[in-house]
Design a protein around this nucleic acid. Structure first.
Lengths: 178, 178, 178, 178
DNA sequence: TTTT
DNA sequence: TTTT
């Protein structure tokens, strides 16, 4: 429940392949860097100056799984989430703050690349859901600047790649009771 | 799941008290008329001309229940939903179309009136959830232009009024699995 | 100036080529039909049922010009506008209402088709800005159900086709005073 | 012009009175801290846990002027802007990043407090547009963590307070050419 | 670091 | 009437 509105809507391209991690209980968490571009006319020169804004995205749940499997460096995507700033400790012991766009069960994601891209490989390792047995080990790594929100994550030890193109993900859109 | 984005965001005031109905299985359905105001400068006269746009809102589920209990004529509200156009038959047998903003489990509502208004009276009858026993009868009334989306609705036979100010409603925000 | 918020955000595909008209003073007005898709799980069968919602879009100004030139049947597009319902008279003399998404100077449009589509021809006639001399004649045609908002429009007598891919359009984004 | 979408929509309350500064050429720049509240059900305890997210807002132009004059600590407001992260140097010489919601000519603001609040006093000094003569001096102060985006700002030396309730601000909504 |  |  929200006493307020906190909504972010972005359309942009991934700067790299997504990074997928897993919570101890096996839930996927995906980090993205998303670029949104804007050009503006320089008042002096009259030139059109390109300007890129980079956004740090964190995805959870089913959306995260789909993003981890199907998005790749360069992918164009629509994202709806909420702003969240978390505090972490720099190596100098001082507080730092990082603002992220959190896409959870209330958020939305739409892949905007055309037909036939799909489960494209990319050079990166395939990212599937890890075996149960891999969900242990380093998930309690110290939370760094990129660190975890809800405890630590385990890196998938392996996993089977994707298959064909997925349905778009908007959690809980299905099985609505009316 | 959505292969596209269909989102409406409104802030406005109710033109009348909400109308609450119930589906055969007891789910609340609320209809609202919402006014959003805009002024523009007349090019001829330079005068600031007010212009009101009226929106037809349909709410379902828990949001509908809260809306029915706490919103009243004049209430200011934030609404997030989706556009939907439905076809109905005019008395002349011709097709008509009505476009509505549907606020369901994926939507959001925020009451924007200040503290302490709450279950304010208004002249209308209090609208609570009807007794089980009342969920029958006329819910198969013919669907008119204002008619139902998913079959017919029953009018609540009675109900106990509201109490104090509710929590805002954003379905499924609670109990998120991370 | 707005005493309220009235915002629509859509991502979908055009059902046909855009229709471009011109106001007496030469401003472009474009009409689009936009489909947004959604699937939902049928409660009975458990089947995934596709559902398409059609939206009537009206664009003005610079955005309209770009849309008229570069969008085609099937194009995927992001649109931000506002809801507006206008009244018109049916042939039976009765009032009818049509709700549209108006994309004007405060709106936004983003073409989401990948690289290299651009000024693609389509089978339709090329749609450029008409000669001054063509901005007369039938612009006072009676406003029908698809009729004009602000007076009538003239159909472009001719025009030169498009060129290469345009910059995206977000009116007034340029030359911002800071 | 934007090759992408970068949009933030917030409804929340000010944590303090707005801070107004002015650019060398006299344009208002306002900083706000805005709280959006959300509650979630704790999985362990089942308790409803309140959670507040703080957002740093920067406003420019006419919107900034209105915000500086009429918003006060506690004011409830709707804001539409874009995400922007700027880099600054910590005292230790290291890079830091601050993410802000920028509300410029493409953004929107709506005051959501009920009627008759208006230019309410608050304990802070009234913040009006400074005299021309005051637009000099320290506007080249070193940019700190709260520092300027486009050069430095001058603090208003004084200014006359507000008057009555203003029209809401949505720049360029007026004088639209149709 | 992405896209056009 | 579009898309996947």
């Amino acid at each position: 429940m929200a006493r307020g509105v906190n909504k972010v809507i972005l359309i942009g391209n991934l700067g790299q392949d997504p990074e997928t991690r897993y919570t101890p209980n096996g839930n996927a968490v995906v980090n993205l860097n998303l670029a949104t571009d804007e050009s503006y006319k320089d008042r002096q020169t009259g030139q059109l100056v390109p300007k890129t804004e980079w956004h740090r995205i964190v995805m959870f749940g089913k959306i995260a799984e789909v993003a981890g499997q199907y998005l790749r460096k360069g992918s164009k995507v629509y994202i709806e989430g909420k702003l969240q700033t978390r505090k972490w400790q720099g190596q100098d012991g001082q507080d730092r703050y990082t603002t992220e766009v959190v896409v959870d069960i209330n958020g939305q994601m739409q892949m905007l690349d055309s037909r036939g891209e799909g489960g494209g490989a990319s050079q990166g390792a395939p990212q599937g859901r890890p075996q149960q047995s891999s969900q242990q080990g380093n998930y309690n790594a110290p939370a760094g600047p990129q660190g975890g929100q809800q405890g630590g994550y385990s890196q998938p030890a392996g996993g089977q790649g994707s298959g064909s193109m997925p349905e778009p993900v908007d959690d809980f859109d299905d099985d609505i009771p009316f």
